[in-house]
Design a protein around this nucleic acid. Sequence first.
DNA 1: TACCCTCAGGAAATCGATTTCCTGTACATG
DNA 2: CATGTACAGGAAATCGATTTCCTGAGGGTA
Lengths: 336, 336
Amino acid sequence: MNITIRDVAMRANVSPATVSRVLNQSKPVSKAVREKVMRVVEELNFNPNSVARSLAMKESKLIGVVIPNIDSVFLSKFVNIIEEEFFKHNYTTLLCNTRRADDVEKDYLRLLKDKYVDGVVLMTSHPKPHQIEFFEQEDIPVVFAGHTDKSKQFSSVNIDNYQAMYDATLYLLENGHRRIAFFGGPLIYRQAMERLSGYKQALADYGVKYEESLVFANDYDIEHGYENGMGLFQRADRPTAICCVSDMVAIGAIKAAEANGLRVPEDISIMGFDDTRLARAYRPGITTIRQPIHELSVQAAEMLLKQIKQKEVYVKETRILSHEIIVRGSCMAVNG
Amino acid sequence: MNITIRDVAMRANVSPATVSRVLNQSKPVSKAVREKVMRVVEELNFNPNSVARSLAMKESKLIGVVIPNIDSVFLSKFVNIIEEEFFKHNYTTLLCNTRRADDVEKDYLRLLKDKYVDGVVLMTSHPKPHQIEFFEQEDIPVVFAGHTDKSKQFSSVNIDNYQAMYDATLYLLENGHRRIAFFGGPLIYRQAMERLSGYKQALADYGVKYEESLVFANDYDIEHGYENGMGLFQRADRPTAICCVSDMVAIGAIKAAEANGLRVPEDISIMGFDDTRLARAYRPGITTIRQPIHELSVQAAEMLLKQIKQKEVYVKETRILSHEIIVRGSCMAVNG
DNA sequence: TACCCTCAGGAAATCGATTTCCTGTACATG
DNA sequence: CATGTACAGGAAATCGATTTCCTGAGGGTA
């Protein structure tokens, strides 16, 4: 049916081994033979079967990109960039969208191994024990993105979530805010924990009392931002500012503020996180902490490719990228 | 190193063939032997190597999803859903993000063929000749999404873009608007053409003169919506409404309107397209044409899986899904 | 008892590449 | 001239599954 290396060999009057050598330049072949083989390859329009090749070589030119949810402005951008990097280097991206389901994560990791994936990028703020265990046991190059691996066991690239939220809170404090709410993520995520710590520490350093009733911990989406806001804004002791864990949460909070007759930023300042495209598009523009998403993706790709190439000698790296406050219109100084 | 079917066979005192039979239920095996094999499989935590399996079975359990840009609210949602469908059926998604580059498209198609992908979903409103040619020559199941293949040569699933934009325009006309601008896409895209036709026809059916100066044709993003708006809103004869080709363009247009001191919808009505998450999140909520994105993805997956299963007898299908106007706050009746 | 049939399960071929091991030729050197 | 060496290129093993073909045991029937 399909043309195989054997067809080429017969037609060129050589052995399959020789054809393989010509195509992969894995051993010198005389010019005459090489040219004859190449001619036949052209003639038959032969493409080596990459499945057979993977089986023999134990490499697939495939990279698994494991993310919790591709339907996210932040993560789809991450994938967009990283896929391009891999493509440039002749690797193809296997999309493993786990939807945060434990069993899907497990299935995908097993599958990646079975498919002889050459490497994996694991985008998660909170690697599960089974994921750690998997990469300890299997000898598959991996880079964690969005998580800092303090054990130095694996390579990772991330921002400093603690410091980022510290800076966000500090920004509001310096603008005269004293009642600052925190719309955070579920505390089972390390990232959420770290950000909460940053928020707390900034308050403490400024001598502002931490108040539990101003802190929320639920999912990163618009709906929760809205819900949190609706509960909060009707209280007499409502805050003058909010630190949100994502731009989406900030948008939800802004909607809730408006629904309660509050103007943003005049009556309440709302700060986002990530600096997704939305933060710029929204009105008011959302003041936010920019994650260097482009750098994050490129460096994750770079580290992984390096690791694949130098599998034996590669030394694990931990890279922390710097964040940045992007000032737009959703925050203002108190009495300013 | 790795556990193979041979290891399992030895440990269970049977032949590899038997192990294969137990695992695939491809031939009856006595209860005793079956149980023994299963026990050893559990013990060794054996997973059949899918590359070897692919080679023997001539199937890869891989599906290529070709899209112009994963960094899009609409397309990332599409991929999110379709990936889940494929995962459910044990297929893995190979992400082919072409960034609209011709050579990337070509490279990816060739690569998909080399990897013996079981099927391809091609999401594009405007298949290129080389893509058509490719699928004519290769015997790879394919489904076009977002494009209607009138030749019935391939399966496709889409909405009726002409009718959708007709309805959008009609909605504005029925609300008393007579000067309606059109922020469309580049006319090299069939989709953009069809939508423009719908717009024109609605105007014609309502006896409203088509005015070239109200029509723009450029990319689907916020920036272009903004640019178009900035050019238009300063004119004395500015429209009272705009039909936009995407929610992003609508958002850009709204920003431009505000920048020119126009209120939406009081001073100008702006209509989106797609009904992405953004349309709901924005203020005002964007009145928009909903593409049934979920159905689109699910049906594309379903058609492809059916085609893979029944490769010999499969009859190509063309499915047109219905759109819907979602009324939110960005449009209102003239003098209403 | 003899014969046939059923069927569980093993041996070996197969999928399509790569790679190791080996052979035979050509050339250089003592 | 004999021997050692370099090296092109073939035969066969290998990667890890599936599947075909075959064998031998057990049961049913005449």
